[in-house]
Amino acid sequence: MYKILVVEDEKSLNDLITMNLEVAGYDYDKAYNGSDALDMIYENKYNLLLLDVMLPGIDGFELAQRVRHTDIPIIFITALDSLPDKIKGFNTGAWDYIVKPFEVLELLARINSVLRNKYGYENIQIGDIDIHTKERRVFRENAEIILTRTEYDLLETLALNKNIALSREKLLQLVWGYDYEGDTRTVDVYIQKLRKKLSLENNITTVYKYGYRLEDK
């Protein structure tokens, strides 16, 4: 399990990020200022840092600079959206830069992308289903189940955001793309297909008037 250090001085935002990390199945630690974060980085092993910039004491840019040699990937989460600040952020070796306010799904997607780039593809396991994300193949009790491209994309999106309800519109956006002009009923059709093919009737739950959630408990 990947372990993430969240450095954010606002208690509310720190809780927000960590609560969502918990749902998405990551291990995490919280730090509320730069110097505490520095101590924690030296004492523990983290796979990723989520870093605010305007921190009391050592600020985010300086912290990133100081821990650069540890080779831990960094994503900045900050209210500073000016180009010079972004450039400064990337110059410290950051992998990504997210401006507040942000969508939680986007944060999770970016975290996933950084982790994949850094540590390689990780297979996802939901119940007795194995998703080999690199080869885009799905196995159930070691027997491969053939999925179409769209079915696979939908499954992976649900699996990466497991336990999080995704609205039909969001799913359309994530799986079919922003410019897809289809009906949200398309989503319902593909969800039915996935449930049947993978026997996930109990795992893919319908969220009333909203969308779907892949549960893995």
Binding site: S12, L16, N20, V23, F102, S167, Y210, R213
Partner: peptide, 12 residues
């Protein structure tokens, strides 16, 4: 960010 994030959290 807090308001947006927590409401999103409650919804999903």
């Amino acid at each position: 960010a807090g308001i947006q994030g927590f409401s999103e959290y409650l919804m999903s």
